[in-house]
Design a protein around this nucleic acid. Sequence first.
RNA 1: GCUGCCAUCGUCUAGCGGUUUAGGACAUCGCCCUCUCAAGGCGGAGAUCACGGGUUCAAAUCCCGUUGGCAGCACCA
Length: 492
Amino acid sequence: MKEVRVRFAPSPTGDLHIGGVRTALFNWLFAKNKGGKFILRIEDTDEARSTEASIQVILDAMKWLQLDWNEGPGNELSKYAPYYQMKRKERGIYQKYLDDLITKGLAYLCYCTSEEVDEIRKKAQANKLPPKYDGRCRHLTTEQRLQKEKEGRKAVIRFKMPDTGVTVLDDLIRGRVEFDNSLLDDLVIMKASGVPTYNFACVIDDYLMDITHVLRGDDHIPNTPRQIQIYNALGWKTPEFAHMAMILGSDGARLSKRHGHTSVLEYRKEGYLQEALINYLALLGWSTEDSQQIFTIEELVEKFSTGRCGSSPSIFDPEKLLWLNGEKIRSKSVEQIYELFVDWLEYTDNEKIIDDWDKDLLKKAIALEHDKIKLLKDIPYLVDFFFVREVVYNDEAVKKVLLSEKSKDTAKIVLIESAERLKNQQDFSSDALEKYARDLTTEKGIKTGQVFHPIRVAISGRTQGPSLFHMMELMGKDEVVKRINATVSKFF
RNA sequence: GCUGCCAUCGUCUAGCGGUUUAGGACAUCGCCCUCUCAAGGCGGAGAUCACGGGUUCAAAUCCCGUUGGCAGCACCA
């Protein structure tokens, strides 16, 4: 059995977006599942838009997502290298096949300008005909060619499409799809600049790199018959194709800036975990029979198959992603979350936030807020009151719990007495503190909330936070007493 | 305009001709737990399976048509 080889072949013309990641992921999962190879190839033949920065973004994103490649940039010694199409072009890899096709009469030089071709297409469209180049340069004589060149025209190379019959695509996800050859036009396979176009370079490289399966977005379906024809012309067997449905924005339109983050790295900045993004993306366009939602990477690798990929498009739902991220964080140990958090601070250049924080206290604070963390970026806000010198009081909290007509008298008494008594509290464990607080309510004949809430606000400045007595225990007696005293003198 | 792809709760999906009063998940609502916020538990609401024709004893499931959405139609990939 031939080794499975798949590739992810992004063009470095912008950020790596959600759809691209899903394509990369499914290829990666497929390769892993089959014990095959996953190849990363950079399709940088768009001279105008390809950028070095964009290549870097792709590489960084793939690394963060842990979609490691068996071959690709960095493996320049491989027999399949290089993995950048422009480098391959420089080595003359494509020229050979271009010459071959021209010699065989399967491709030809075309001197039409873009304007002329546009004109031809528009005319066809006006007549309700498929917009298609008419092949007028197919049979140029040598004199005509010389004449065109004398006019200073530069030639492109066009592929001669068969104009009868059908091209059949046997898609792993969609089954049989037929295309009428008469609708396919003579596509440009080499630009006037001498650089091959996508449809050509892609075929050559997939063949040369022994790619066995091409998994890509279904926006490529219209390209497939053209590519199949090129394979045929070169006498090559086609790889298997699997076209997955697209990921759309909330309004059903193609995912774009309007729908929130487009670049994966923005999700990293927000504090999403790579495994949450991976898990979520796996759920878009693929499912198991029991509709399982939460997967480890290993489970994904084990269970993935193209046969269970859906053919209808799906809408990207940020809320579900957020839920999944919380799920993943909750499944981690405090130590793991701490590590992840430190990495995130470093990545977002925010290390100074925790510079003077006691790391041991931070871990314990994280433990108290463990179930509440949805994003890594939530952590600072969730625990920062443990580390401040002076409590930052939330106005609403103070108004409601300390200063309202209803609460202020009892709050004052509770705080003054607590400051006094807690100073002498021997056992500062959460259990003992809870007993203390409950005893106080009985003694004063008031409700638990009338004791718990003022203390909470006094020591944290907020009405929300971890379990009160665990929070006090962690803060320690001196700090708690100090904060209560400070609160009393500030407000009463 | 031409060609192609797609169509089950708001969203992601299960379903491969009878076991379906269409199952699960997110979101939403209610209750429980509870010192707050979460998390968790329980429960509710939410889908005439886009529509119309067939085929069949039987269709969300097969076929045809219609409608709608999306994609492609570059010397972009």
